[in-house]
Nucleic acid binder design. Structure first.
Length: 263
DNA sequence: ATGGTCGTTCTACGA
């Protein structure tokens, strides 16, 4: 089973690239973030025409997350069930696809360390941990994937000195991510490739992509049970090239999962 | 030279 994540930075602006990519790559499951659409605007019929069922959670303009699947899609949930108030933003959607529980996540950016949004980011990650505690165990086939807006380690940014005092690299964020991962999630890409210089996001400005100034902030975190079935991981840098690219590239992982066809 | 873009939407703001 091929599972992918892609922050598309507006599905409206990105639809031609997304359709082309799906037709070429044919993932079994594609999670998208930053659709910037309401549910009513989401082009589910276009994806159905490509052979995908879909689920979307969005309020329009900002955020918005989706899951596409050609191996079935069921038990769709939006947001957290952690005993707390509803998340005011549309940043996480859950579904079961081909026997794997999937969560498409768009973690808050945080903006700056002294911004309220930064506290929201930390609290949001704790809510994710609580939801996992409440509903799942690491022996299930589960993957939480998306734009985490956190570089897990200094090798995940092109120059750590440039990020000192900023978001994406601060210790509280990394601790909050660690607490999510300590539930029982594995970053298979990093486990497979310990090398620096591997990124998933490059700022549009300053020719950052061609200068190889990026960050690795998009990744799949797989339950221990699913990680044992992981066979390959890839960032599709080619999707960052060409006409009207997203500023993020798709990240893909293959798993030896026997697809449970939808009944 | 130490910036440089692109998305939302309509004038800045978010990333």
């Amino acid at each position: 089973m091929l599972i992918a994540t892609w922050n598309v930075n507006s599905l409206k602006a990105r639809m031609p690239r997304v359709e082309e990519w799906i037709e070429t790559v044919q993932p079994d499951v594609l999670c998208m973030q930053e659709t910037k659409l309401s549910d009513a605007q989401f082009p589910g019929m276009a994806f159905a025409g490509l052979g995908y069922e879909s689920a979307h959670h969005g309020f329009g303009q900002w955020n918005g997350v989706a899951i596409l699947s050609k191996v079935g899609i069921g038990d769709v949930e939006c947001g957290f069930d952690d005993g707390g108030e509803p998340d005011p933003d549309s940043r996480i959607i859950w579904a079961t696809c081909g026997g794997v529980r999937v969560a498409s996540v768009y973690v808050p950016n945080g903006r700056t360390l002294d911004d309220d949004h930064y506290q929201y980011k930390l609290a949001w990650l704790e809510r994710l941990r609580l939801h996992l505690d409440r509903h799942h165990t690491p022996d299930e086939l589960l993957v939480v994937l998306g734009d985490w807006n956190i570089a897990p380690a200094d090798i995940d940014v092109w120059d750590p000195r440039k990020f000192v005092g900023g978001t994406h690299v601060s210790q509280p964020e990394r601790d909050a991510l660690r607490r999510v991962m300590d539930w029982g999630l594995v970053d298979t890409f990093r486990q497979r490739y310990p090398d620096p210089g591997l990124y998933s996001y490059w700022d549009y400005r300053a020719g950052d992509f061609h200068q190889k100034r990026g960050m690795r902030i998009d990744y799949l975190l797989s339950s221990k049970a699913l990680a044992e079935l992981n066979r390959s991981d890839l960032v599709d840098r080619n999707a960052r090239k060409g006409t009207k690219p997203s500023d993020h590239a798709p990240v893909l992982s293959w798993f030896d999962v026997e697809v449970q066809e939808p009944s």
